[in-house]
């Protein structure tokens, strides 16, 4: 997976209404001749053994197993494909954006949405509205995540996982961006944003951050189904291997235009899950 070379060209001179971008590493260095830049960070972040609390989240799979919506590998495969195409795509876009934003310590040209862009099409698109400091940057991206997660149960699960990830990542990869994020979003940044910033701290590119987000958007649910239904873990890994992760990853610029694919069934599952008497997973 040579995402470094193929999916993460240096971003310069991007269009208006986007967070500022610079080169992907934010620092000069020798050319990445082997394509290995960031890969170790990506492996550590995507590993289910990363001690950041992810093991206790099923991403709706526990409730889907309980209600019978998932009863075997075929249902699980459909569940995971749909999850990746919706929540996974949104998470990947947020992680990309967070990682790219964390590349620049200060954001002189960060723009906040101009609320009335007259006749120019989308009135919610961003337009120049002055400089914003780092705190505004993270709060703005956080608000974009909030607007894409309608279910309070899912917002809570996302923030809880984000808070735990930031706490863990700060000790593994101490960095100013993680400290800023923890300070500016004290209740816990949404998980994909935390993941994007942690990825930056771990030396990853935005494309790698997005890949980690896409991948972890399905692995927790897959593992939960293995535990809950006693599915053959090899069969489930075959399902994971066949998922089209690349298809949900794209370069992102305009935060207001980030993908916002909704999954109404996941919303229902998340809310029902909170109200279910017997729960093994947090979400």
């Amino acid at each position: 997976m040579d995402v470094t070379a193929t999916e993460a060209p240096a971003l310069t001179g991007a269009a208006s209404g986007m967070p500022p971008t610079t080169d992907l590493t934010g620092q000069p260095g020798p050319a990445d001749l082997t394509g290995l830049t960031g890969l170790s960070g990506l492996l550590l972040l995507a590993d289910s053994r990363l001690p950041a609390g992810g093991h206790a989240h099923s991403g709706g799979a526990e409730e889907a197993c309980r209600t019978g919506a998932i009863s075997g590998p075929e249902d699980l495969a459909r569940f995971l494909r749909g999850r990746l195409a919706t929540a996974g795509r949104v998470a990947a876009a947020l992680a990309w954006s967070a990682c790219a934003a964390a590349h620049v310590p200060k954001f002189p040209d960060t723009e906040v949405p101009d609320i009335r862009a007259a006749d120019s099409g989308d009135p919610t698109s961003t337009g120049p509205a002055g400089a914003a400091d780092a705190a505004d940057k993270w709060r703005l991206l956080d608000a974009e995540a909030d607007a894409r997660i309608a279910s309070p149960a899912q917002r809570l699960a996302s923030r809880t996982q984000g808070r735990l990830l930031v706490r863990t990542a700060k000790r593994i990869w101490p960095s100013r961006a993680l400290e800023e994020l923890a300070r500016d979003v004290p209740d816990g940044a949404h998980h994909p944003i935390a993941l994007g910033v942690a990825a930056r701290a771990a030396g990853c590119t935005p494309a790698q951050a997005a890949m980690a987000a896409a991948y972890t958007s399905v692995t927790g649910a897959a593992t939960a189904a293995v535990r809950l239904l006693g599915l053959d873990p090899v069969t489930v890994h075959r399902v994971l291997a066949d998922l089209p992760y690349d298809s949900v990853i794209a370069e992102q610029h305009d935060w207001s235009a980030l993908p916002a694919h909704a999954a109404p069934a996941l919303d229902l599952l998340a809310e029902q899950h909170l109200r279910t008497e017997v729960r093994l997973f947090v979400s």
Partner: peptide, 21 residues
């Protein structure tokens, strides 16, 4: 209360993040 995702030992040994939190 902390939920452990079917793995009580994971939550106290391998991934203690939720408990620390």
């Amino acid at each position: 209360a902390v939920q452990t995702g079917c793995c009580p030992h994971t939550a106290i040994r391998d991934d203690i993040a939720a408990n620390i939190d």
